[in-house]
Design a protein around this nucleic acid. Structure first.
Lengths: 245, 245
DNA sequence: TCACATTTGTCCGTATGTATC
DNA sequence: AGATACATACGGACAAATGTG
């Protein structure tokens, strides 16, 4: 009789490569393996885990796709710990949208609601450094647009900075993931200087009210801004769908 | 993935298994492969793509982790198209939360705020089936507690069902990930029948007001309930920390 | 109940490509 | 430019799981 805490055994026996990727993930969670650290080569890992190289490879494939490691070829290469995990979430989110299991409306609605909450916390918790970064962001954006360059990067960054100012990492992760998908959509759009200008102005207004710690006004401005972005994204989406058919 | 016309070729040459998984994904996006469809076996795929079986396996590993396929062994088994993409996103999000060593306070705060939003949408969008499921959930929970069994599973499930009733898959994904971490914390707790009873009663009250579509009252009840859970989790957490030292 | 066929899971050995020194 | 160390890919083999007759 094998000891088990539960009544039933797991239906699916875990495969060797699952155990291995789980074990390496554990080491990363524990902090024993940190970003930048090098993992042993495939052959060495196979020796240590006492499995074949292919088994290790499949484990590494999982970790790579999950964003835990990147892989470099050549001497002194091999698997390297790297936390680009949020971009892997965004890729899945994008897949889900292309599959139409998530509608663009669901995504933008969730974004609107979550960012409203986030702004609320940002107004309460933002420290001088956060405000400085936000100020710097809108300044750079304004400069760009003044030189007839669309400020896409800066305008996306604004929302990431807002999330950071909330001092809640869960919000940061969620906003980060959603914003990457939004940015992907926006990048498929013709650069529109006038729109970019409107966005910068909206951001400036929101920031202004955030600094004055006026929650209601600030959130109302954010809501108005995001609803505009939402309808604009919907246009792009409709075009994309038409192209596909 | 939609092709984008860029100036430069990608630095990294795509590996064979990436091409294969991308090709299969394309077929799924196009709708040629639909959920429930069976893919050829590994050997057959290897023959068709003219690659080794190991290469096919790594491609399948990617598709499996991304939630595009599930794999069954035995005769008439093999890779099957299945749209479990949202649960794979939850898992990634869960990884991200675990990775960043997020404080319990951040987690429970985010949970509180997001669930408030979710409940708001649930009240607006819940259909009879959702309400039926929620009713069934609290009934089962009540029965369990009445027989002196703590209803942990049911009590976690309640919040998942709420998220589903919001009719927004993004909310479902976020709540799912957060609840997994919360459930893990709760599982380390001594079974407390009285507390479990209080939780069931709180859920019943919330559901009652949801059915009456009374937003303010319902959300206020939810907030009160989640704040209690929050302080309870904090107690456990503090104890755990003390034990470790 | 048992044997069988099918398919995944795992292993070993080898060859090739590639980046670094 | 050549040697080195690593990932990538190939081919063949057996074990383990699973549904069927």
């Amino acid at each position: 009789m094998v000891e088990s805490e539960t009544l039933f055994k797991p239906i699916k026996v875990r495969r060797a490569f699952e155990e291995i990727s789980a074990e390496i993930k554990r080491q990363i969670f524990k902090g024993i393996l940190k970003p930048g650290d090098k993992l042993p080569s495939e052959v060495e890992l196979a020796r240590q885990f006492n499995v074949a190289r292919q088994t290790v490879r499949e484990a590494l494939r999982i970790l790579e796709l999950s964003g835990f490691i990147t892989i470099q070829k050549g001497p002194d290469g091999g698997p390297i710990i790297s936390d680009t995990i949020s971009s892997s979430i965004s890729n899945s989110l994008l897949d889900a949208i292309l599959l139409r299991s998530i509608s663009l409306d669901e995504l933008t609605t969730a974004r609107l609601e979550i960012e409203k909450v986030v702004l609320n916390y940002a107004i309460e918790n933002a420290v001088d450094e956060d405000i400085e970064r936000l100020r710097d962001n809108v300044l750079r954006a304004r400069k760009k647009v003044a030189s007839n360059i669309v400020a896409s990067t800066e305008n996306v960054e604004f929302h990431r900075l807002l999330a950071k100012a909330s001092k809640n990492l869960v919000f940061v992760i969620v906003v980060e993931s959603i914003m990457t998908v939004v940015a992907d959509f926006l990048s498929r759009l013709q650069p529109d200087l006038e729109k970019s200008w409107q966005v910068v102005e909206a951001h400036e207004e929101i920031l202004e009210e955030l600094i004055r710690r006026r929650k209601e006004v600030s959130i109302a401005l954010l809501e108005k801004h995001l609803l505009e972005v939402k309808s604009r994204l919907q246009e792009i989406y409709d075009k994309l769908i038409q192209e596909q058919d």
